[in-house]
Amino acid sequence: MSVYSKIEVSAPGSTMLMGEHAVLFGEPALACAVAARLTVTLLPRADRQVLIDSALGQYSGSLDTLAPMPELAFVLAVIERYRASLSRGFQLTIQSGFSHTVGLGSSAAVTAATTAAMAAYSGQSTAPEVLFETALAAVHQVQNGRGSGTDLAASIYGGVIGYDMAPAGVRPLPGLPPIVLYYSGYKMKTPDVLALVERKAERHPELYTGLYHLMGQTCRQAEQAVRDQDWSALGELMNIYQGLMDALGVCDATLAQMIHRLRAEPGVQGAKISGSGLGDCVLALGVVESDMPWDVIPVSVAATGVEIHYETN
Rank of each mutant, 00 (worst) to 15 (best):
P172A: 08
D252R: 08
A31T: 08
V296D: 01
C281K: 05
A256E: 12
K189T: 02
V287N: 08
S60A: 14
D192S: 10
L211T: 00
T209I: 00
H309T: 14
P128G: 10
C32V: 10
H140L: 06
G57A: 01
V170K: 05
T101F: 00
V226Y: 06
G162D: 03
D280R: 14
L234M: 11
S232E: 14
A225D: 10
A233I: 00
L237C: 10
L72H: 10
K187L: 02
D230W: 06
I79F: 06
S107Y: 02
G249L: 13
A153H: 05
S2N: 14
H100E: 14
H140S: 04
G145V: 04
T190A: 13
Q269F: 06
A36V: 01
A195P: 02
L285T: 03
G158V: 03
I7N: 07
L285D: 07
H309F: 00
W294A: 12
L92D: 10
Q124Y: 05
A302M: 01
T114R: 08
Q49G: 08
T150I: 15
Q224G: 01
L56K: 08
T126P: 02
H140G: 10
V9N: 04
M188L: 15
G275H: 08
D230H: 12
M118Q: 07
D53P: 00
A55T: 02
V160R: 05
G270M: 06
Y212V: 07
T218Q: 13
S232W: 07
L255D: 01
P44M: 02
D53H: 15
A135E: 05
Y212L: 03
Q229N: 11
S122N: 07
R146S: 14
L176M: 10
R203Y: 00
R45Q: 11
H100K: 04
A195N: 11
S274E: 11
L283Y: 09
V180F: 02
S87H: 12
G19L: 12
L283P: 14
V3F: 07
T209G: 09
R146I: 00
D47M: 04
Q91H: 15
I308K: 01
G162R: 05
Y310N: 00
A303D: 10
A222G: 03
G97Q: 08
V193Q: 05
G162S: 08
H309K: 14
S10C: 12
V139K: 07
A153D: 05
Q242V: 12
S148P: 05
T39E: 06
M16A: 15
A22Q: 15
L244C: 07
W294K: 08
G277C: 06
V197S: 05
D53L: 12
A154E: 03
P174K: 03
C32M: 11
R227S: 09
V282D: 05
A135N: 06
P293R: 13
